[in-house]
């Protein structure tokens, strides 16, 4: 783990990275990239059933989403938030357990891939219906307030496609009505599965919606780590200080298919030349080396350490037992006396 605490409050010089948690954040980005490449290779090798959904190109934004969360906060990560989930405390082992269907993962083989939660650090398990997590996060924040908890915030993410659902509209509005400390990070990765922006929305900028919901709105280039840390970190700080709900819209290009089954051949070549389409992981690494914030040997060592962590998480999960249908407790509710008996018996 990086020792960044000593940097806090220190006067920034030209020799320092542009954000006090910059290098720590980059390590999460790098871990995510190496880890997700491993998941992809497992999927291509037929070792993962279902699908693999990666956040390639979104590591900077996602890391910033997870990095500023504290104990007692609520996190509602979505499909491309491996980096944020890890930065917010979910171990790699829970990810491999979920992807590989180990009974010991938080979803126990009952749900897979990105549909997983990590309650230990307040991470909710998303459902596939976009926008529906926003109001759930709001409800958690309402309950925390009712119980007298203090100093908590909720952060959840959405894409430019998910921004167009009714649930997102209702969820964003009710957060304002209930005056809860919510940060909504909307990542415009320019393709909702295969559909580009012009068939998703017709307002000039998604951030223009912020004042309509009573939010403070911010835009950020999602490929620039320092900007992501500043904007998302700032939004978290303002929400924690009692400010209105915060909308941060990040612009970037999804550098993978919707899932690893998808070759994304519908993405036109010219869009890849846009400044916001660059790959944030090598771009950040290049800057770190150029500025001398870390040397090549250290980065090499990080890679080796991360690869070892990834291999260990995969190997451990692969050794663990898969769920067995005949041993499964086929029960959808927690109250035994309320189970509809003939249905339970599968008759």
């Amino acid at each position: 783990m990086l020792q960044t605490a000593t940097r806090a409050g220190a006067k920034t010089s030209k020799k320092d990275p542009p954000h006090e948690r910059y290098l720590e954040a980059f390590r999460w980005m790098l871990q995510t990239r190496i880890f997700e490449e491993k998941l992809t290779s497992l999927y291509r090798g037929g070792l993962i059933t279902g699908g693999v959904y990666v956040g390639r190109g979104q590591e900077a934004v996602s890391t910033a989403c997870g990095l500023f969360l504290q104990k007692g906060d609520v996190f509602g990560p979505l499909i491309r938030d491996q980096a944020g989930r890890a930065a917010a405390g979910e171990p790699l082992l829970n990810v491999t357990r979920t992807y590989l269907g180990s009974r010991q993962g938080s979803m126990r083989g009952r749900d897979g891939n990105i549909h997983r939660g990590w309650p230990e650090t307040g991470q909710l398990a998303m459902i596939s219906h976009l926008g529906s997590l926003i109001s759930v996060v709001v409800g958690k924040l309402m309950a925390k307030r009712m119980k007298g908890e203090k100093n908590f915030i909720g952060l959840t993410t959405i894409g430019e496609g998910g921004m167009q659902t009714g649930a997102t509209h209702e969820g964003m509005n009710i957060a304002s009505v209930e005056k809860v400390p919510l940060v909504l990070v909307a990542v415009n990765n320019h393709f909702a599965y295969s559909t580009p922006n012009d068939r998703q929305f017709a307002c000039a900028q998604l951030v223009d919606r912020a004042p309509g919901y009573g939010y403070e709105g911010h835009e950020v280039d999602g490929t620039k780590l320092a900007d992501c840390l500043d904007e998302i970190g700032g939004a978290v700080e303002r929400a924690r200080a009692g400010g209105p709900p915060q909308l941060v819209v990040a612009s970037l290009l999804r550098l993978a298919g919707h899932g690893e089954h998808d070759d994304a051949s519908y993405v036109p070549a010219e869009i890849k030349k846009e400044s916001w389409a660059q790959d944030c992981v090598p771009a950040t690494e290049k800057l770190i080396l150029e500025k001398g914030w870390l040397d090549a040997a250290t980065l090499k060592q990080w890679r080796a350490e991360i690869s070892a962590e990834v291999e260990k998480a995969v190997e451990t999960a692969q050794r663990e037992a898969a769920p067995v249908a005949s041993e499964e407790d086929w029960c959808a509710i927690s109250t035994r006396g309320m189970v509809d008996a003939p249905v339970l018996a599968g008759e």
Binding site: V74, L124, S132, L133, I134, S135, V136, V137, V138, G139, K140, L141, M142, A143, K144, M146, K147, G166, A167, E170, G171, N173, I174, E178
Partner: peptide, 17 residues
């Protein structure tokens, strides 16, 4: 906002309400 009414209730219930 029927969707959000139930959504918030789900969140609150998971939080012990």
């Amino acid at each position: 906002s029927e969707d959000a009414m139930v959504g918030t209730a789900i969140g609150a219930a998971m939080e012990g309400m």
